[in-house]
Design a protein around this nucleic acid. Structure first.
Lengths: 120, 120
DNA sequence: ACGATAATTCGATATCTCTCGAAATGTCAA
DNA sequence: TTGACATTTCGAGAGATATCGAATTATCGT
């Protein structure tokens, strides 16, 4: 990932409405929500929301597709993963003993079922 | 974590110099680097860097301490974890089957030793 | 206390972005 | 093809932030 792309993605998240939209869609899951529903949920005019959705999409944080007259948006999990990967790349210069901070555990998207989780 | 705090943290990362500094310190590990060394590495004047370090520190992404005449900076792993946790909170509404994207694995700070890793 | 070093604060300019209504685009049903 | 709906694009004013040199503060060795 290029630094420019990462900067665009972090800038996209550094704004109240957009952060709210992104988190809403993270919680909504892969099926996403359409633009109108999102606008109603976050309480901004359609034109303003459209601007923000475009920024999030161009940043690689959301994906969009049309269903009839509506446009649906959902988290781009791959893009999000790439961003966080870039941020923490080569953490501690690759010496595991130095920084066992278990960042991974705490951001585990959709935790694994209890049995599998216990076996890890 | 408050949305305002998260916005501040993402804004802190949404800038070329600061993102470079943060990643440099992620790779440097818990011992960190002093301000002078960081300035030399990223190639900006001391005053400019100081401004950026302050923003990263106030955002909870770095911690700082004095050693004689120098001030050292290192990643605040706890603050970073809280930020990423906030971002991905309640992913997919808590239904694991929907989004097994393994974001966690790819940002695993300092990967576990091979034997333990293989056993998971 | 003094000079040297390390880092921060100050001040001013330039650049970027948020915001919304109005208008335009694209899609659908009849 | 006509009208209605969903979303995006346009345009302009208000607010926020990056940048650097100069000045200031803090710490150390002698």
């Amino acid at each position: 990932m290029e630094p420019k792309a990462a900067i665009g993605a972090f800038a996209a998240l550094a704004q109240e409405t957009r952060l709210g939209v992104f988190r809403l869609l993270v919680q909504a899951g892969p099926d996403g929500l359409n633009a109108g529903d999102i606008a109603a949920r976050v309480g901004v005019p359609a034109s303003t929301l459209s601007h923000h959705l475009g920024i999030l999409e161009r940043a690689g944080l959301l994906r969009a597709w049309r269903v009839q007259r509506q446009i649906y948006y959902a988290t781009d999990y791959d893009g999000t993963r790439r961003l966080l990967d870039f941020l923490m790349q080569d953490c501690c210069g690759g010496v595991p003993e130095l920084c066992r901070t278990d960042i991974a555990k705490t951001i585990d998207c959709c935790p694994k079922p209890a049995i599998i989780q216990g076996a890890s």
